[in-house]
Amino acid sequence: MNISFIKRAWIIALIFIPINSFTQECLEYYREGDCTMDINRSYKIYSQSKSFMMSPLDSVDLNIVMYGQKDYIFSFCTHAKLYPIHFRFIDPETQKILYDNLSDNFIESVGMGFNVTRNLTVRINLLARRATDNEISEKIGCVGMLIQYKNYFAERRHVQY
């Protein structure tokens, strides 16, 4: 029996099978990746923070709800070879681009205040400048969007008994 051939076949299978289940590994990426460097203790983590898997050939749209009278910090993170991350904030109704991080040399985090509640589309592309052409067509990785928020004015909650 050619044991080495069987081993090789299993190794090939094992290399590829986990890639398919890799999506699950991405679920908490915004809590684990580079995004964690932007965690600010005076802010709360917004539940619409999201992690997902994408390649430089993908484009991802996230439709989110931003409550008014709040400050937000948006942070984006991915694997080293997939940077820079190109993100744009788009008004879903008019398709007008409200902000494009191209204008800030693909900065990875941005502070934003919303005076009124509105919906927002966040469009993400990976430019993967450090990846080769082959890597661009093959590489797929986790992307995290961490959103933190705090109210414009300090909350004055009281306990009611």
Partner: peptide
Amino acid sequence: IKKVFFLCPS
């Protein structure tokens, strides 16, 4: 290729 997510506050 375009993936679209719809998210909602908690």
